[in-house]
C-alpha cells in the first residue's frame, strides 16, 4: 500500500462491520470490494457487493440501532470511517453534505423495489 493511502486496510475475508453489533459511523470504500451479507434463519445471504467510492453502513448514522448486515472484504480492501458525530455535526451546519447519501439511499430503495417485484413474480 502506498504511503499516502488514507483509511484502514482490511485483508480478504476480514470483517468491517458485523451484523448485530453497535455502529458508530459509516464507511466509504476507497479501494477494492466488499460483500454485504445478512444472516437470518440460519442462512447467510449475500445481499450485494459494494465497490470503490460507495458508502456503506449509513443506517447506523441515522438510526441508533445495531448493524443490520455484516460487511466483509473481498480481497484486499481500503476503507475510510466517517464518524457519526462528525457527520451529524456537519449535516447540522450544511445539510447539503447529506445529498450524496440521500442519492445512495434512494438508489437502494429503487433496487430493492425491483427485487421485490422480481421475487413476487417468481413466487
Amino acid at each position: 500500500m502506498s504511503t499516502g493511502a488514507l483509511g484502514k486496510v482490511y485483508e480478504d475475508g476480514e470483517i468491517l462491520m458485523r451484523q448485530g453489533e453497535a455502529g458508530d459511523g459509516m464507511f466509504v470504500i476507497q479501494e477494492g470490494q466488499v460483500e454485504i451479507v445478512v444472516d437470518a434463519g440460519g442462512h447467510s445471504t449475500r445481499v450485494r457487493v459494494a465497490g470503490e467510492g460507495e458508502i456503506i453502513g449509513e443506517m447506523a448514522v441515522f438510526e441508533n440501532v445495531v448493524h443490520s448486515a455484516t460487511v466483509r472484504a473481498m480481497g484486499r480492501v481500503r476503507a475510510l470511517t466517517v464518524d457519526r458525530r462528525n457527520f451529524l455535526r456537519q449535516i447540522n451546519e450544511d445539510p447539503s453534505i447529506a445529498f450524496r447519501l440521500v442519492q445512495t439511499m434512494s438508489r437502494r430503495v429503487r433496487e430493492l423495489s425491483e427485487e421485490v417485484v422480481r421475487l413476487k413474480r417468481q413466487s
Binding site: V28, Q30, R100, L101
Partner: peptide, 23 residues
C-alpha cells in the same frame, strides 16, 4: 484535517494516494 477528509469522502471527493503523500 481528519474532519475534512471525512466530509470530502461523504461528498464523493476521495483523496487518492497519488495526491496524499503520507497518511
Amino acid at each position: 484535517s481528519e474532519s475534512l477528509v471525512q466530509n470530502l469522502a461523504a461528498e464523493g471527493v476521495n483523496l487518492p494516494p497519488a495526491v496524499v503523500q503520507r497518511g
